[in-house]
């Protein structure tokens, strides 16, 4: 499956937007945390898991989705939220813990919900799989051709929730796609020391569904695999498991001393940066001009900068607002 020029530009813009978002967030997060790094201090407190490097998983899948399709993401959700079209201003305000956030500051970075585009995420490993399966079941019961996508890290493929959801989705032939973002690390533990198989896509066989492995963080290969999986789901032919070999440029969380990681790993990964590679492909093979690519870059960076400004300007919630919205 070959992406059109529009699809290429869409993916490029989504990836550049996500990258600029994470790099901006990394700087904002450190405000008020130097020279003493205190995780609870500063402009943006709490844990912060950034996804720079993992953009192909977001853009290459979400380019095939509609607003009515559901995405459930992980504790590292920003790139996927951006690609799914989550309101960027309100998402950023949420991460800043502000009044205008998606949840008025109740959820924060690991708990982003935007029902307008059917996006949700969770800080618990593996807990994207069940809800996506349920969204797919709802689509079936409602007679819709909507699909659902569950994002998981490679570490989550060792959780019971993942395996149980795969079985259920296959048993009921539900329109769901499971996307494993294999960034090689479960916090400090390398995949080779946590996972009995080198490639999680082989686990699909155990649940009688197609399993696809995408190597080398290749956006076009993600596009191809996800396009087929989403089309198959929409046709009512059941779930697919895709594992994407991707990269994680930042630590597991901001503040991670990364004592476990080879010193040169990130530099080596950045030499194969997926955004640069996609841009090269667009210019060389797809008739995209430098001006078109630059225009996309300028536009998305301005959107990101505006979102951070929106968040900065948004007020703090009132303390007693904490008592609201426990029940619907």
């Amino acid at each position: 499956m070959e992406p059109s020029k529009d699809q290429l530009l869409w993916m490029y813009a989504a990836m550049a937007k996500a990258r600029h978002y994470e790099d901006t967030m990394a700087r904002a997060y450190m405000e008020g945390k130097t020279p003493k790094f205190d995780i609870g201090a500063g402009l943006v407190p709490g844990e912060m898991h950034l996804a720079a490097g993992q953009e192909p998983c977001a853009a290459g899948v979400c380019v095939h989705l509609r607003a009515g399709d559901t995405v459930t993401a992980t504790h590292r959700p920003h790139h996927v939220a951006i690609a799914k079209g989550v309101d960027l201003n309100r998402m950023t305000a949420e991460i800043y813990g502000r009044r205008d956030g998606l949840a008025g500051g109740r959820g924060g970075h690991m708990h982003l919900f935007d029902p307008a585009v059917n996006f949700a995420c969770s800080g618990i490993i593996g807990e994207s799989a069940g809800p996506a399966t349920g969204a797919a079941l709802a689509a079936r019961l409602q007679g819709s051709d909507a699909v659902a996508v569950a994002y998981l890290g490679d570490g989550a493929a060792n959780q019971g929730a993942f395996h149980e959801a795969l079985n259920l989705a296959s048993l009921w032939r539900l329109p769901v796609v499971f996307v494993i973002e294999d960034n090689a690390w479960g916090i400090s533990v390398p995949k080779s020391r946590s996972t009995a198989v080198p490639d999680n896509s082989v686990r699909a066989r155990g649940y009688d569904m197609p399993g696809v492995h995408v190597a080398d963080n290749d956006t076009l290969a993600v596009f191809d695999a996800a396009g087929e999986a989403v089309a198959r789901a929409r046709r009512g032919e059941g779930p697919t498991l895709i594992e994407v070999q991707t990269y994680r440029y930042y630590g597991h969380f901001q503040g991670d001393p990364e004592v476990y990681r080879p010193k040169d790993e990130v530099a080596r990964l950045k030499a194969r940066d997926p955004i640069d590679r996609l841009r090269g492909h667009m210019l060389d093979n797809a008739g995209v001009t430098e001006a078109e690519a630059d225009e996309a870059l300028t536009r998305v960076r301005a959107e990101v900068d505006a979102a951070f400004e929106f968040a900065r300007q948004s007020g703090e919630p009132a303390p007693e607002d904490a008592l609201e919205h426990v029940f619907a």
């Binding site: 503040g255 991670d256 001393p257 990364e258």
Partner: peptide, 11 residues
Amino acid sequence: TVAEIMVEKAT
């Protein structure tokens, strides 16, 4: 070991 120093993220 008498003290711990923290530099950015590392102890």
